[in-house]
Write a protein that binds this DNA or RNA. Structure first.
Lengths: 104, 104
DNA sequence: AATTTGTGCAACCAATCGGTTTCATTATAT
DNA sequence: ATATAATGAAACCGATTGGTTGCACAAATT
């Protein structure tokens, strides 16, 4: 199954899950309480997020704490890079862009 | 119809379209030549990207040039902000984060 | 040992997605 | 005026999505 970050964050529930876990590692049960859907549905989202390495499960007794893998988020940031120059140029921050180009 | 940037960039073809248009405004026909699928399929992607304001069509005679709306891309960058602090902290760039927090 | 709790997985289902083919419309060229 | 070119829109289709229910299993509690 092809899983990539872009597809992973396309779903609003998954983005909410990421935001919650970003603040604190959480178990599926604890997470599910924040949403209207069933625990199983949340669990499935967790599987998808884990499959593309945005989350990492950490077993602790019979509970599983899901933690964020920030490095993976960075990939999104890197993809954005190609557009960042454009919007900074158009917003008059040309100097900033030129400084960056000099560095490279 | 629920159209948001996250859903828009979930599709790899649409990301490719964005990357191409980021470099130069293009017409549907010109774009379609870069892909295997039909012009109509590309046209549909353009509609989706336009509906969520990532692109803006500019009629010019019987051709339509699609241009990037970088401000919209910025929204993605803003969403990433909540995670940026985390990954910078974990990558040992704590000083940078603290400086940012001081500014706010 | 028996029960409860936390979890994942599979089967099913309606809705959506991305593609195709066909058709309508408007602008340019002959 | 007629033909061609550039484009969008609709109808259809198979694949995928996100949700549900039901079940299985291991860890904790009684």
């Amino acid at each position: 199954m092809r899983r990539d970050i872009f597809q992973a964050i396309a779903d609003p529930t998954r983005r909410a899950i990421l935001a919650l876990i970003a603040m604190q590692a959480m178990t599926p049960n604890a997470l599910a309480q924040h949403f209207d859907s069933t625990r199983q549905a949340v669990s499935r989202h967790l599987r998808i997020l884990t499959e593309c390495d945005l989350l990492k499960p950490q077993q602790q007794g019979r509970e599983i704490y899901y933690t964020l893998q920030p490095e993976k988020m960075k990939e999104l940031d890197q993809w954005l890079e190609q557009f960042r120059k454009i919007w900074e140029t158009r917003f008059g921050k040309l100097d900033k862009v030129l400084a960056q180009m000099k560095k490279e």
